[in-house]
């Protein structure tokens, strides 16, 4: 038992094989209220973060896009409009509940035809090598058990010259903002989770998992080590969120 490999689940250490299941429970629990909570927690700013992500993706009509951890399909909807009928967007999520909510929501908005929902694990993507022009993973990487493995697999399925964009919570750049953000994350966020989604624990996990996620420079280095080139990041909202971009050589 002593040699059993562990990983973090928020502030807890759990056996590696358990993390995916625990994360899945969180997202099963929040799936139906995910969008409402996103708007509430970020004050709607998550739409601006995603807008900037789309811009940096450089997506064009006819391209193949993979939206990993696509959840309720925010990015997929926008990519679907950009790539048009000649392109394709794969909405991938490991969590069936999130994928179902995303797929239904897209169909309700009339977005279909060039969108394919796929239940997939970011560490073992079920696609051939060199398939996609662009891969995005928004607020998903911190939930992946082995991030290095996931980054390497993303590199594998990207075409040469393709882009990976990682939008994720990160480390605020000012001490004052960090303190305010801590108070917000650990006091207000679980309270909002309790009131709106009747699930304080999932939102406590959200705050903890953000603190355990690699900071800007570390994630950039991880991307370099996975094989990406021209890696860079853009801090947004004072570093609360960072957008990393790397290119497959």
């Amino acid at each position: 038992m002593k040699d059993r490999k562990t990983t973090h689940f928020g502030y807890q250490e759990v056996p590696v094989e358990e993390k995916a299941g625990r994360v899945a429970e969180v997202f099963h629990s929040v799936a139906s209220r995910y969008d409402v909570m996103n708007d509430l927690m970020s004050g709607g700013i998550h739409r601006l973060w995603k807008r900037f992500t789309i811009e940096l993706s450089g997506a064009r009509p006819g391209q193949q896009i993979l939206d990993i951890a696509g959840g309720t399909g925010d990015l997929t909807a926008r990519f679907s409009r950009i790539v048009g009928a000649s392109g394709q967007v794969v909405l991938a999520d490991i969590n069936a509940s999130m994928l179902e909510v995303g797929r239904d929501r897209l169909i309700d908005r009339g977005i279909a035809g060039n969108v394919v929902p796929v239940q997939a694990d970011a560490q073992h993507l079920p696609f051939p090598d060199n398939t996609f022009d662009c891969i995005t993973i928004a607020f998903g990487l911190r939930n992946v058990t082995d991030k290095d493995l996931a980054l390497r697999d993303m590199l594998r399925v990207l075409k040469a010259g393709g882009r990976l964009l990682v939008l994720e919570f990160s480390k605020p750049q000012s001490r004052l903002l960090e303190k305010i953000y801590d108070q917000y994350s650990f006091r207000l966020l679980p309270l909002m989770g309790k009131l709106v989604a009747n699930d304080a624990d999932s939102y406590r996990y959200l705050a903890e998992s953000i603190r355990r996620h690699p900071n800007q420079e570390t994630l950039k280095q991880m991307m370099v080590e996975a094989g990406f080139v021209e890696c860079e990041f853009h801090n947004m909202t004072g570093g609360i969120v960072a957008l990393h971009r790397g290119i497959k050589p």
Binding site: L48, R51, F52, N235, M236, T237, G238, L243
Partner: peptide, 12 residues
């Protein structure tokens, strides 16, 4: 300089 503000301006 923060892309969030600029994205907000562009969106508006």
């Amino acid at each position: 300089s923060d892309p969030t503000f600029r994205a907000g301006f562009d969106l508006a």
